[in-house]
């Protein structure tokens, strides 16, 4: 599913070169539940962006779903994201002027799916996240937990192979947070997707079957916890 070989990412800050990710080898199989943890500045966000195809490595090879994606064009990468990756962000990133269902519809709209099929898929996704009664609300009319559930519905609506969650509970209180996590875990099992959660919340990280710890741009620990 995900196959990183000797991936290094270097940023230029002023005159200094900063290695955010150094020589990372990482293989994640289909259906795995992985948490990536580490202190801030450890390079875990950079690694996530690389996995998410939002960023390109400075060197190394990346195969996504057996396809070498390192030298795809921006639009081709966008195509892979559109069809295969669902995103969940810490601050939800809902478009405020759109209703919950329109937000969920967005990836399908971008993918050019026909309106009739779009409606079906949106309904299914809203149903899966128990948001059917909130479909016509705009994001300011929703609670934080509900907003993140809309974001989850948006992430799963295209039936992606991989869901990337960046601090999904970071802006939520404990109750709403655990609801969101439970939902993600439930969807992973139901739909058989690969779930990668980036967090520095140890409680959340330890729920994953496989826990990766990043320190100073390198994988410091890669533990398969038996659930």
């Amino acid at each position: 599913m995900i196959d990183l070989r000797n991936i290094t990412k270097t940023f230029v800050l002023g005159e200094q070169q900063v290695n955010a990710v150094i020589d990372v080898d990482l293989t994640i199989g289909r259906g795995e539940y992985v948490s990536i943890m580490g202190p801030s500045g450890s390079g875990k966000s950079t690694l996530l962006n690389l996995i998410a195809l939002l960023d390109r490595p400075s060197s190394g090879e990346y195969r996504f779903d057996d396809q070498l994606v390192t030298d795809l064009s921006d639009d081709e990468l966008a195509g892979v994201r559109r069809h295969s990756i669902g995103f969940i962000f810490q601050s939800f990133h809902l478009v405020p002027r759109l209703t919950a269902s329109q937000n969920v519809e967005l990836p399908l709209t971008l993918a050019g799916v026909a309106p009739v099929r779009r409606r079906e898929q949106v309904e299914r996704a809203l149903d899966a996240t128990s948001l059917s009664d909130r479909a016509q609300h705009r994001s300011h009319e929703l609670s934080g937990g509900q907003r993140q559930r809309v974001a989850i519905a948006r992430a799963i609506v295209t039936e992606p192979k991989l869901i990337l969650a960046d601090e999904p509970t970071g802006n939520l209180d404990t109750a709403a947070g655990s609801q969101v996590v439970a939902l993600l875990e439930e969807l992973r099992i139901k739909q058989g997707v690969t779930l990668i959660v980036v967090t520095h919340d140890p409680d959340l990280g330890q729920r994953a079957e496989r826990q990766i710890r990043i320190v100073d741009g390198r994988i410091a620990k890669d533990v398969h916890a038996s659930a």
């Binding site: 966008a78 892979v80 967005l106 971008l110």
Partner: peptide
């Protein structure tokens, strides 16, 4: 943020 989101969700440059 909205534009970034659209691009993350797979919007083409032309879109």
């Amino acid at each position: 943020a909205e534009i970034g989101l659209l691009k993350a969700l797979g919007a083409r440059l032309a879109d």
